[in-house]
Structures are given as structure tokens and as C-alpha cells.
Design a protein around this nucleic acid. Sequence first.
DNA 1: GTTTCCTGTGTGACCGTGAACAGTGAACCG
DNA 2: CGGTTCACTGTTCACGGTCACACAGGAAAC
Lengths: 349, 349
Amino acid sequence: MTVNSEPTPSSAGQPPARSRSANIRDVAKAAGVSHQTVSRVINGHPSLRESTRQRVLDAMEALQFRPNRAARSLVTSRSGMIGVLVTNGTYFGPASTRAAIESAASTAGYLVDTATLTSLEETAFKEALGRLVDHAVEGLIVLAPQEATLRQLAHLPVKLPMVTVHSTSAADDHGLSVDQVAGARLATRHLLELGHRSIAHVAGPDGWVESNERIRGFRTEMANWGLDSSWIVTGDWTSDSGFRIGQDLLAADPPTAVFSSNDQMALGLMHAYGDRGLRVPEDISIVGFDDVPDARHFAPPLTTVRQDFDELGRRCVAHLLTQLGVPVQNAPRTVVPELIVRRSTAAPS
Amino acid sequence: MTVNSEPTPSSAGQPPARSRSANIRDVAKAAGVSHQTVSRVINGHPSLRESTRQRVLDAMEALQFRPNRAARSLVTSRSGMIGVLVTNGTYFGPASTRAAIESAASTAGYLVDTATLTSLEETAFKEALGRLVDHAVEGLIVLAPQEATLRQLAHLPVKLPMVTVHSTSAADDHGLSVDQVAGARLATRHLLELGHRSIAHVAGPDGWVESNERIRGFRTEMANWGLDSSWIVTGDWTSDSGFRIGQDLLAADPPTAVFSSNDQMALGLMHAYGDRGLRVPEDISIVGFDDVPDARHFAPPLTTVRQDFDELGRRCVAHLLTQLGVPVQNAPRTVVPELIVRRSTAAPS
DNA sequence: GTTTCCTGTGTGACCGTGAACAGTGAACCG
DNA sequence: CGGTTCACTGTTCACGGTCACACAGGAAAC
């Protein structure tokens, strides 16, 4: 029984077939009440006689009524939409976080609007943000862990409830993050405790919050042990870059252990070493970061730091909803990562 | 110069500070024209005196006017939004496709609304679809390559321009796909041409379009060579399942080659073989599917079939926009995959 | 018995935009 | 020179909801 199907051309005298869908007044007429009463039913107004409510509900059912969100949004200036600003939606981390955000948002009755940042230019940023603002999103979640983005966000006059992920400092008033420093320290300490002293760090690209935080964690932990932490090489998150860096590290006197800022680059490193006949972990230990689902099947299975992206996504929505005045139980701002020890690390030979 | 910043409490006599943002009539008043003229400027109406247009544009600039989309959407019943229905947003394929969709949509001035399917139940499907419909998306892209979804889509009265990805047959009137059968045949033929005759296929889960299509391609090619194609084991796309299947395959008399329905499961397979001391490709050849960016750094680098997800995403939007009456140059419905030969395959010893 | 309050409902205005229609004046035409 | 056409602009209404307010009638309070 399709609503939109054309009724057979009806005999004269009947009102012409309505092509547009039923509105609140149609329902009102069908239920024999005023449109305002229908509105009250929709919005769960308390003082309504139960019989009236039921009559209206029946009419709504019969007419297949669905409230028009544009109209409601026009008058209430609430859209029921949350905007998400993403840069690299393809990576595992952001993708997982987004999935969790969407699921949590939809549970709360919100729809997620996504705008992808095509570049880090301010114009691209303004454009994407403007698009979301035009569509009247009620709040904003920023999954753009480049410092450039955060800086633009800070100085732009965005009057919008907002949550940023991977924010640079806990002092930030709308930041939410996995404690990258703690994670990096976990990874570094693991290598140190195994007895490694010659440790290199393959960092993520400049300008990414995670890169810097993990570098900071690496440095802090090394310093705690009285060791030099200047052996830092910069990659771009891809396994390709890890591969190239691995080759370079082998050219000179290689370290006995490497802490890679993500799992992909660790994979590339292992590939480079394998190509030269070196064995992991016998010849070199490697720790990754993220715990991508594949990491446990790398050759060898990768020791890494797990970030709970799902949890992060859920908390994003929770914090945003709190700002929007929706009652939800609030969660801590920081998610603590966890070291997963597998077979890519061992004591130096 | 923040628009929303509170002006200093102004002296009496001035009109009270307007908290809401400027609307079309405010602009009209400022420019000394009617609101309709402003509307015409916004919509690029042809017959407008240039001086008038400029005056209006200046007023819009001065008042920081942004058209209210809810109001426009109410009267035009066009929302400027495209709905995307996803099931597994975390996987590389869907994630890449989504990224391409978002970018293409935003180029065309559309915003992307995402609804994630939490289960394959019809209720979940209706709920997600209903959410998108409520928000008046103008068109729908379905990234839910389970047959259950496609079936529900087929029998549901969705009166909406729509594009489904990974559709089951070219006869479908709104389907768009990578030619999975051709890809699977490419992979299988590659193994056959290397001399393998004992070939197993690790399939994706039941009910997924890709699983079935690739099985079909495998069977077709094997049949062409007069070989039995009944050696099919079912995984769930994860490297974990590939690992388990790899162990099982080793229990009996293992095949000399395996065609895995995706790269993750191939990784799991390689892990299982490596654990038993078998070497790839000397002892067993493995072909994957997708060409995930990491595949070239697996140990050994994986021979696989590349799907151009970006292209797929772009074409989705192109086809949808065509249905929406937006002029775009149209693209073929089918994307042809490509065999990438690396080091995980060799002639049987 | 009147006043007050509360429950349940209706009336009319309004949100910001676009569409239909109307009006104005100048140019053009026969 | 009067009528027609055309470029340009204004007036009015509709879109589908919500909000502020009014109002009827019964219960409770005085």
C-alpha cells in the first residue's frame, strides 16, 4: 500500500488526489481537533486527554503523516543534525570514530552531516564549516587532528557547541582525546624495559597533533631513563613511508628497536627489514600505535598501543549532547590507551 | 569583527541589538528594494538591473547575510542534502567510497547525511531510511552490499532518486558496481596460468553481494579450465577469520594456491602458513582482493585485485545528480578492476 | 456562591524563503 | 499616436510547523 502511488482516476465530486503528503492540519481535520493539538501530540505535551491523543495518533497513522523537519526547523531553529568535519576519513582511526559517532548520534535522534576538508587552507576550512552552518547543524565534531585546523578553529568566530578530537591539551575547553603521551610512554617504556637503549622513533607528519604528542611521550620516557631521544624520523602515516624509512635506517648503524607512531608505518618498516634479511624481533624490535585489526596478523604479530576509537566516538557525542542540553551521562575527557604486547618485540640480542 | 559578538550596550533610541541573524527582508530594507528582489539576486534571476544586483550584494555583505536553508527547503522542498546509507563504514572499501562521495557531493554543492545501519533487520533499515527521508534528502546512495539490504530496498516503496553500490546485476536500474566477477576471474586465471590446479577460494560471508559475485567469478574461470571449483571456505572478511581458515586448510591436504575474497583474509592466511613454517609463495600462492594500501607491504607483498573505490564514489554521485536533474557528465556503470601482481604468487613447486 | 486554579483545547501570528501575479515605465511598432 | 512588448520590480500568499495567548468547564478554595 504505497502512499505515493497514484489512486485510480477517481470519479468526479471527490476532492482531487493530493500529491503532497499530509501535514499537521490534514491530520487535525481527520482527527477532528485543531492543528495545535496535533502538534502537542507530536511533542508529547502532558495535558492531553488520552482519548484525544489516541484519535490523533490513529489519524497520523492513517494518513502516513511524517512531520516536516524543515518547517519545524524554521520555527525552532533546531535542525536535529550534528556536523562532523573530517580530513582523512579513510584511515582506520577516523573511520572507526565516525562510525561510533554516527551510531551514538542516531541513538539520540540526531542525524550526522559530514563535510570533508579537501585541504588545510583556511578557505577550504571556512567553506566546509560554512556549509555545515548553513544547514543549521546544532553542534560540531571536529575530526581533523592537524594543528592548523585547531588553530583556525580557535580564531574563527564559531558560535556553535563543539567538540574537537585529538585536541592538543587537556586545558582546552572542548577537546577530547586519547592520551597520546601516555600511550607513547607505554610503548617506549616497554622497549626500555626489554633492555633496548638504541631506540629510534618514526613519527607521523609535522602538524598533526598525534605526531607531536607521541614524540613528546617518547622524549619524556627516554629522558626519564637518562637517554638521548633525538633519533626521530618523520613519516606520513603510510606503510610506504615506513618502508622507505626502514631502508634509510638500515643504511647507517640501525637501532635495536623502533617505536613507530602508527601500525601502518610499522608494517612498512618490517617489510624493509625483511627485504634485507633482518628478523623481527630477533634483530630489531618494533612497536606500533593504534592496534589496527590487522596488526595481530602482521609477520610477526605487532606489539602496539590500542586506542579505543569506538569509545572516543561515543564520548564525542556524549559531550556534544551535554552542551546541547540533552541529558546524557557524561564521560571523562580522556581515553587511556593500552599496550598490547605481541611478537614484534624482544630483548636485544 | 564577530557577527555574533554583543555590541556594547547601546545608547537609548537605537533599535535593540538584533540577536537573530539578518534575513532576506533586512537585506531588502538595507538595499532599498523588496525582499523578492533580494531573492532574485540569490537565485541568479536573469532580469535584474546590474546596479540593483550590486546594491543588494553590498547589503548582503554588510549584514553578513546567509540564506536560511530551512526556509528555502520548506518552500522548495529541496534540501541540498544527499543521504548515504552505510553498513560497515570502517572497512577500507566503504570508507574510501564515502570519502569520494563526500568530496564529489560537496563540489556539486550538496551536503552528505549519513545513516549507519546497525543491523540487517528490516526495522533497522526502515528506521535509518526514515531518518534520512525525514530530513528530506534529495537522493540516496546505498553502500550496503548485503543482499538483504538490496532486497528490502527493492520491495520498499522508496520514491527517491537512488544509487546502490555493489549491486547484484547490471540489469538493475540504479545499480553501480565494480565488476566483481571479472576481478575474481582475473585472480583465478592468474593462478591457473601459473600452473596451479589445486586452488581453494576463501569467500566472504554469505549474503554479501561481493562474496557471491567473486565466488561466481572463481567458479566460471575454473569451469573454463575444466576444473572442479567446489573448494570454497567462508570467512567474514576479517584477518582473524583468514587466520582460522588458514589453520583449517593446513589440517588436511592443503591446496597449492588460494584466492582470498579480500586482502585482510589473505593476511590472516599468510599468518597461519607462516606459523606452520610454510612459505609464500614457494609452498603456497595467495591472491587477495581490494588492493588495500598496506597490501604491498605484507610479507610477502600481496598479489591482489585493485578496485578503484574513489572512482566508484565519484560515479555514484554523478549518477545520482543525473537523476536529480543536475547536469553532469555521466560515467559508465561498471568499474573494471585490475590485477596487481606482487610476490605472493608463483608457479607451484 | 463566587473566585481561583488547573486541565484540555482552539485561534491567530510568525519563522524566512520562493512562486504567482501584478504593476510600472520605456522602447518599439504599425 | 495609441497599443503592445519587454525588462525590471513589488505585493501577496503559501510552505508546515511552533508559540503565545485565549477560553471553556470543572474542581478546589474562600
